[in-house]
């Protein structure tokens, strides 16, 4: 692994503001020191990785996260997605910092003083099933009709029951998602709403929140959570670097 002239393959963690290149005491993957590669007021957070570095595991994920977490404490950081590796320091300067200078500058400004907060909501299954039964006559009737019958005699009814529940859940999810996002968005700058990752998910959204308004946001979420107590359990992750709110154009810009 050649260290001279910035040789050596670089793993890239994120982009910050930097007036000059430097080597940090903090370490990254494999315990290699972090190196800030600076160009035009921008700095890429990098560390040297072995030549054939193509696979990674849990440790690398955790390290990537830790580096960004630390950077966020110090200032604005635009996170790279996990796993971006560039052939050498010159490539980092040329193909990342120079090629995308304007975009990166703009996004650093946009992200100043802001953090990402990820909010997930999970339905209580008994509660939501009860709601479905209360609201859907066909569902109630089907449920009654299969009571006390052997399972193999009721296959199609059970499929139909499941379908109705899934549809009902889909409707509720859409409505709850819309209502919750509408209540939180006034305290945020933007939201990225994701698709649910399993059938009991009520909400999966990342919010871009100004740090000075984070208390308001948290309080609004608290109120929502209290109101949904027993129905939706909320999970909050943050403050985070703005993973969901940064991107690079395909072409240099």
């Amino acid at each position: 692994m050649s260290e001279s002239n910035g040789g050596g393959v670089r793993y890239v963690y994120g982009v910050v503001r930097a007036r000059r290149s430097s080597r940090l005491k903090q370490t990254g993957i494999n315990g290699e020191p972090l190196k800030v590669v600076a160009d035009g007021g921008l700095g890429a957070l990098t560390s040297t990785v072995p030549e054939g570095f193509l696979e990674a595991g849990r440790d690398e994920l955790l390290t990537h996260s830790a580096v960004l977490e630390r950077a966020l404490k110090k200032g604005t950081v635009l996170p790279m997605q996990f796993g971006v590796v560039m052939p050498d320091e010159a490539a980092v300067r040329r193909d990342l910092l120079k090629a995308h200078h304007r975009e990166l500058e703009t996004q650093l400004e946009e992200m100043d003083g802001k953090v990402e907060v990820n909010v997930k909501g999970i339905y209580s299954e008994p509660r939501i099933l009860r709601e479905a039964l209360e609201e859907d006559g066909e569902l109630r009737a089907l449920r009654e009709s299969i009571r006390d019958k052997p399972q193999d005699a009721t296959y199609f009814e059970r499929i139909r029951i499941g379908e109705l529940i899934a549809e009902c859940l889909g409707r509720k999810r859409a409505e709850d998602e819309r209502r919750i996002v509408d209540r939180l968005l006034p305290h945020a700058v933007a939201v990225e709403v994701g698709e649910p990752v399993h059938e009991r998910m009520a909400l999966n959204a990342s919010f871009l929140v100004e740090q000075r308004r984070q208390r308001d946001f948290d309080r609004a979420l608290d109120e929502i959570a209290e109101g949904q107590s027993g129905r939706i359990q909320f999970k909050y992750t943050g403050p985070l670097p703005p993973h969901s709110f940064v991107e690079l154009a395909m072409e240099a810009a």
Binding site: L54, Q81, L96, S206, L248
Partner: peptide, 22 residues
């Protein structure tokens, strides 16, 4: 949840090799 974001979001440069997770 953080790792989910790291894997799925953030800046990407197409041209360069992406590390795959084992």
């Amino acid at each position: 949840d953080v790792l989910e974001l790291i894997l799925d979001k953030g800046l990407v440069i197409d041209v360069f090799v992406r590390v795959s997770l084992i």
